[in-house]
Simulated assay, not measured.
Amino acid sequence: MNFRLPKYHSPDFTKDQFVAAPNVIIEKVTIKGVAPENYHATSIYPEYFKVDGKWILASESRMDCVVVLKNDKSLEVKEFRNLDIGDSVILGRNENAESGIYVHVGGFTYNESEEQQSFVFRTGRTRESSYSKDYDSLYELLKHEREHGYILWVLGPAVIFDHDSKNAMAGLIDAGFVDVIFAGNALATHDLEGSILRTALGQNIYTQQSVFNGHYNHIDIINKARRAGSLEKFVEQENIKDGVVYSCIKNNIPLYLLVP
């Protein structure tokens, strides 16, 4: 399998279904953070909305949000919690232009038909689902980006709570599939805890068994790291030879820890 970036194909808005489609219907927000009834929720696909007879693509879209029509006729995709009183929210649950809303599931080159893709997204395949072919595609994507792009990982501490996943992430760093990591301080803390004490949050990272006074482990790690003055000095002093932090330092990979 050789990865190729898919080509995007815009809809043909000269077709009758688009020409005859009505403009979107809007309703204003009356309670901050609460969308009107029958709001349209965004998907993982490119979405177009008909405003004053013109189809407009919602830029910077994200899943499970609502679309707000602004005074200048531009579109803003908002999370529910960010809705303000007076925002004009687009309404409609039809997505094939009938309500002035078109979800373009066939915008990229796929093997499935648009109908199959739409059905799969709405009934089974979500961003939380993963299958063997998805991992195959991910491997090819990582290989492509290693040669042609820049790979940034945004990680939570769950990746290092398990012995094998911790080693797998370190292996990706060593193999050149990581150019930078963004994470919270918990990732570094529990990764170092696992490298020294073989625990994370006081549980053995392989057996998941809790150890006596294990809840002190990560606090001890933080205290010792602060005494060392830097992660580099701490790794050297403790003779750490495995883990995500160690691999980042060894391979000169930037590790940005976002601390509240």
Score class of each variant (00 low, 15 high):
residue 57 L to P: 00
residue 147 E to L: 12
residue 174 D to H: 14
residue 237 Q to R: 14
residue 51 V to I: 14
residue 217 N to F: 10
residue 209 Q to P: 04
residue 174 D to G: 12
residue 90 I to V: 05
residue 11 P to M: 12
residue 4 R to P: 01
residue 229 G to V: 05
residue 52 D to K: 02
residue 171 G to I: 07
residue 219 I to M: 08
residue 258 L to P: 01
residue 151 I to A: 02
residue 11 P to L: 12
residue 134 D to Q: 12
residue 223 N to W: 04
residue 71 N to C: 04
residue 39 Y to Q: 03
residue 132 S to K: 10
residue 142 L to A: 06
residue 163 H to D: 08
residue 247 S to E: 12
residue 17 Q to T: 07
residue 239 N to A: 00
residue 49 F to L: 02
residue 57 L to N: 02
residue 126 T to H: 12
residue 53 G to V: 13
residue 27 E to D: 01
residue 223 N to E: 11
residue 6 P to S: 09
residue 3 F to M: 12
residue 121 F to A: 07
residue 216 Y to K: 00
residue 83 L to A: 01
residue 164 D to N: 13
residue 72 D to C: 05
residue 231 L to C: 15
residue 217 N to Y: 11
residue 188 A to G: 00
residue 113 S to F: 14
residue 26 I to S: 05
residue 107 G to A: 07
residue 175 A to I: 14
residue 43 S to F: 04
residue 104 H to D: 15
residue 257 L to P: 01
residue 19 V to N: 04
residue 25 I to D: 03
residue 171 G to Y: 05
residue 35 A to K: 03
residue 114 E to T: 10
residue 90 I to M: 01
residue 153 W to N: 04
residue 65 C to V: 02
residue 236 E to M: 08
residue 87 D to Q: 02
residue 141 L to V: 13
residue 43 S to Y: 03
residue 7 K to W: 09
residue 242 D to A: 13
residue 81 R to P: 03
residue 202 G to F: 11
residue 103 V to Q: 09
residue 140 E to L: 08
residue 210 S to Q: 09
residue 202 G to K: 10
residue 174 D to L: 12
residue 148 H to D: 13
residue 89 V to W: 04
residue 239 N to I: 00
residue 125 R to Y: 06
residue 183 A to T: 13
residue 22 P to T: 09
residue 230 S to Y: 08
residue 86 G to W: 09
residue 14 T to E: 08
residue 231 L to S: 14
residue 137 S to Q: 11
residue 32 K to L: 03
residue 234 F to Q: 09
residue 255 L to M: 09
residue 92 G to V: 05
residue 195 S to G: 15
residue 105 V to R: 14
residue 220 D to G: 00
residue 57 L to D: 01
residue 17 Q to D: 06
residue 28 K to Q: 10
residue 155 L to I: 15
residue 98 E to P: 14
residue 259 V to R: 08
residue 238 E to W: 06
residue 101 I to Q: 01
residue 46 P to D: 11
residue 104 H to I: 05
residue 133 K to C: 09
residue 226 R to M: 15
residue 76 E to I: 04
residue 222 I to A: 03
residue 131 Y to G: 10
residue 38 N to F: 12
residue 81 R to M: 14
residue 233 K to E: 15
residue 32 K to I: 03
residue 238 E to V: 05
residue 63 M to V: 15
residue 23 N to A: 04
residue 79 E to T: 00
residue 193 E to W: 06
residue 132 S to Q: 10
residue 58 A to F: 00
residue 224 K to Y: 10
residue 54 K to Y: 07
residue 160 I to D: 07
residue 172 L to F: 14
residue 53 G to E: 13
residue 199 T to W: 05
